[in-house]
Nucleic acid binder design. Structure first.
Lengths: 146, 146
DNA sequence: TATTGTTATACTCTATAACTATA
DNA sequence: TATAGTTATAGAGTATAACAATA
């Protein structure tokens, strides 16, 4: 047995607190958490189906439809039928979508930086490296490591 | 702007994955996430009111009642009226409660250790130190740092 | 017949408000 | 009147199932 609290017992409340920290920032930009996740995912690269987009942000395909409707109505994303298969929707960020995303992210990261500033330099660097490594793992490997 | 993903964009999915990892372990011990959180909180020290217990684990006082009922029925906690003020309930872990808690926690932490083993030593140490520091902060300071 | 996106339905989780018993 | 605990109600979030369009 270790002498530390459970990882989950530290991360779950931290996760909740970060959500509480960031929702007001997102609201200033007219975004919900899921809408912001959509903008982040599409910024990487356009996606060919809504189901793929949903999966990439850990959501159900039925859950993001309302958010896509809204983002499209506001001109932040484009959602056009694929000419080669008219069942699927091609999804991409508009210039305005990228602008909103960048400005929301700037607000969020500046708040996060203020938080990280409380940590000693070397812990902060190790923390961020470890976090990026763990976030890059497929969820199944976290659920059942080794 | 930093060159990293948002903290929240890494921590929220990690948090979800850890929950998925730990629920099966808890279920083996007949515990839900909230029931386990109750056992962990009471292990630190007995508590004088249910509302204080609820707050310490980030729950609403109305939400933990069913779990307390069940834990008491199974003899894992004691819940006795305070003789000096019969409105309040004194809460504490029984020996059996501590046994179940220890065995569940052993299962959880061994799974977590397998996950942490993927990280380089110094990153892992920095990660755990940073996490403990952040988890010790009051939620308000995370929601609005500085 | 199978698949993409959508809508409709049911279920779970959580928060709010009412109730009781004590003080 | 106020507080601890409880119960009841309502709301949000989520998952499952049915549906329409296209392949």
């Amino acid at each position: 047995m270790t002498d530390r609290p459970d990882l989950a017992a530290m991360i779950i409340p931290l996760s909740r607190a970060l959500i509480d920290a960031e929702l007001p920032v997102l609201r200033e930009h007219g975004l919900s958490m899921w809408a912001y996740a959509v903008l982040l995912a599409l910024d990487e690269r356009p996606l060919r189906t809504q189901a793929a987009l949903a999966e990439s942000i850990g959501a159900d395909k039925t859950r993001i439809i309302g958010f896509l409707d809204d983002l499209q109505r506001r001109g932040l994303i484009e959602r056009t039928p694929d000419p080669t298969d008219r069942r699927v929707r091609l999804l991409s960020l508009t210039a305005e979508g990228r602008r909103v995303r960048d400005s929301a992210q700037a607000g969020i990261q500046s708040k996060e930086e203020r938080l990280l500033a409380r940590l000693p330099d070397e812990d902060r660097r190790g923390f961020l490296r470890a976090l990026q490594a763990l976030a890059a793992l497929p969820p199944e490997e976290i659920a059942d490591p080794r």
